[in-house]
């Protein structure tokens, strides 16, 4: 992944709210996701190992769903590191390939790169690994809709008419 020397266009905004990027998201907070690094169109987020995220109690291997949550979330942050104007985003689709079981007891790092932005859609690739990014646990490919809430006000999706 390139662009390591370029900063996100919204760095001032993101930088000022760097901790809020994840802390404002209740489930990211529940999992203890930590922002490790951001640069242009890229984000690195850590998922600390925790017994609550185990998927196989016999082996202690982390649940695929927790890895997916990490990759979905880090992909979204990567989009925010690529865009020039703040907007809302929503995951359109996400494909995850699970290469191997995560090593029990180890934290998992997710690194995502928003490699293409169009007016409406952001395309993001991601990788999750523990020790070595060249030995991934999982990779992801996702598409995100931008301006997903349009002109809707917060809570507008809750009205009966939208159900």
């Amino acid at each position: 992944m390139t662009d390591e020397t370029r900063m996100p266009p919204l760095l001032d905004l993101l930088g000022a709210h760097r901790d809020l990027l994840l802390d404002a998201i209740p489930h990211a907070k529940a999992l203890g996701l930590e922002l490790v690094d951001i640069f242009y169109a890229n984000a690195v987020v850590k998922l600390p190992y925790n017994e609550q995220i185990i998927g196989n109690p016999e082996t202690g291997v982390v649940h695929g769903g927790a890895v997916t949550t990490l990759l979905d979330n880090v992909s979204g942050v990567a989009v925010f590191c690529a865009i020039e104007e703040l907007t809302s985003i929503a995951t359109l689709d996400l494909r995850i390939d699970y290469m191997r079981a995560a090593t029990p007891g180890k934290d998992i790092t997710g690194h995502a790169h928003c490699y293409k932005l169009t007016r409406n859609v952001a395309f993001v690739r991601g990788v999750a690994y523990d020790d070595d990014i060249e030995d991934p646990i999982a990779t992801s490919a996702g598409a995100f809709m931008m301006g997903s809430d349009g002109t809707r006000k917060p809570g507008a999706n809750l009205s009966e008419a939208k159900l």
């Binding site: 998201i25 209740p26 990211a28 809302s88 996400l94 809430d149 809570g155």
Partner: peptide, 11 residues
Amino acid sequence: GNPSLPALHGG
């Protein structure tokens, strides 16, 4: 996952 909408986390 999205406190402003609000919506469940995609993950």
